[in-house]
């Protein structure tokens, strides 16, 4: 029993990535899109559709990788990510619009 839960924890630990936002650092997993996890960390992000077609949650991706489980309908500019449907795949640094 103990060993099972340990494995589960270590599996999860492998998926944790750091998100840098200015001077803040947030830890996120690959289980949920970035937007939800930023909100859980108390960071206010603009949103509307939360399913990839309105581009309200577009955020600058300064470096690092994200992936999309499905291709969003909204136009994603190069150097930006759509927080509502992006899954963080490495440590990343993000910034809001100026």
């Amino acid at each position: 029993m103990t060993s099972i839960s340990k494995t589960a924890t270590s599996d999860k630990a492998e998926q944790v990535h750091r998100v840098l936002l200015g001077k803040k650092q947030i830890l996120v997993t690959e289980d949920e899109p970035l937007l939800v996890q930023l909100e859980q960390a108390g960071i206010h992000v603009e949103y509307q559709c939360r399913e990839g077609y309105c581009s309200s949650c577009s955020i600058k991706l300064l470096w690092g990788n994200v992936s999309y489980p499905f291709e969003p309908l909204a136009w994603v500019q190069s150097g930006y990510l759509l927080a509502c449907c992006a899954i963080v795949k490495s440590d990343i640094e993000i910034a809001f619009f100026d």
Binding site: Q48, C49, Y53, C54, S55, S56, L73, A74, W75, Q77
Partner: peptide
Amino acid sequence: IARDEALHLTGTQHMLN
């Protein structure tokens, strides 16, 4: 209406881009 408009503006953003 706002849900529709969000989609429409994505349409025009695609055209512009």
